[in-house]
Computed example of a mutant assay.
Amino acid sequence: MTDYLKLTAYFDERLRHGDSFVSDALLDLYGDNAIATSIVLRGISGFGPHHVLRTDQTLSMSENSPIAVAAVDEAAKIAGLAEQASQMLTRGLVTLERAKFGDSGPAPDAAKLTIYVGRQDRADGRPAYRTVCDVLHRLGFAGASVFLGVDGTARGERRRARFFSRNLGVPVMIIAVGTGQQVAAALPELESLLQEPLFTIERAQLCKRDGQMLARPPALPAADGRGRALWQKLMVYTSEADLHDGAPIHRAIVQRLFDTRASSGATVLRGIWGFHGDHAPHGDRWLQLVRRVPVTTIVVDAPERIAASFDIIDELTSGHGLVTSELVPALVSIDDGERRGSTDLALFDY
């Protein structure tokens, strides 16, 4: 079993580093260092430490979309780049999260399985991401969401989406939530279907499923035994068609978190395919009035603020949604160059 790290940066699309956009500078860094995989995802709404709301609802508020850039490789390799990556941002958030590759070891009650494939990859004669979702659905996973990147690296090679192109090499990320036993059952089957796949497995707690409360996020201390800060992440998986009081749930969550200042930030990503619960995998289709693609709302903050954010999310997901909680062992928040947090990894068992 190999120890991996996932380095994720959240920031505004137009943020610059020198003569380049930060997203391009990060991908240059990851390409130069032959990082196993990285992906740039353009968000549809959110806000960050500076508390400026971005949304695709209006043209003026969508001109500087939130961006999430994730990079995954062996722990030593990513740890060596984390500080360099965080210094490229003048405003935003950088997190480091532990993951495993291969055998997940003792099966946890819930786990997050992330699968990285290419847009052009096929399995059983179909797009690979669709075949993967069918396998996960058949095995009883709580949900899976597929996200198409606009840039990234695959096996160390840069893959950029272009306007006049089929974009066959653009990376695709599939995030699935299931039990440890389901993950163990899925890996051999997916390995036989996919060419040179990259999987990571992370521990997660399943808090809500289809609106039903299963458990609150664990109450974590502010720091580990060495004084290194602990952070938590909530991920809320819904469909764009899921509503609360007539508004899409993801918009209601972001607006409430923004208005109450319960959280330091949130980012919403729109998927292209997926499923939650017993619903069959699906995405957009021709001649439909309402978009049915998955959306994922991500909130990362200190444990005491996560508790307040979860209360809001719990209320707004009373009838729909899959909600998970994860430990984030390192975080750096940057606002106008002022840094909070560290890329040093905390160590805490829960």
Rank of each mutant, 00 (worst) to 15 (best):
V332T: 02
T131M: 01
L168H: 00
F147L: 13
T55R: 01
P303F: 06
G48D: 15
R292D: 09
V72E: 13
I334P: 12
L190E: 09
R261L: 14
D314G: 00
E202N: 10
A76Q: 02
G118V: 08
A111E: 09
L190D: 03
V300L: 11
V72P: 03
A154D: 00
A142K: 10
D19V: 14
H320P: 01
D344W: 03
R159W: 03
L93F: 11
L316I: 00
R203L: 14
R130T: 13
S60W: 11
V22G: 02
T55Y: 03
S309A: 15
I312A: 09
P49G: 03
A280H: 07
A247L: 14
R209H: 08
L220S: 04
D284R: 15
E202A: 15
T8L: 13
R119Q: 12
S20M: 04
S62V: 06
A262H: 11
L187G: 15
L345H: 04
P197G: 15
M235G: 07
E196H: 14
H17L: 07
R209P: 01
R159C: 01
L347T: 14
P221S: 03
H51T: 11
P171Q: 03
D121I: 05
R158F: 02
S333C: 07
L347G: 13
K100I: 04
S65T: 06
V146G: 03
V72F: 15
R340P: 05
A252P: 03
D311N: 07
V299Y: 10
S239P: 05
L269R: 11
A330L: 11
G225E: 15
L26H: 06
F141I: 12
I253H: 08
A75Q: 09
L316T: 01
L347H: 13
C133Q: 10
R292H: 13
G102M: 11
R305V: 04
R138M: 07
A161M: 11
L322V: 14
H244T: 07
E304L: 10
L93H: 12
H282K: 08
R203S: 15
M88I: 01
R270P: 05
D259Q: 02
P127E: 02
E202T: 04
L168K: 01
A154E: 09
V268Q: 06
P108F: 12
T95M: 00
A280C: 07
G118I: 01
R203N: 13
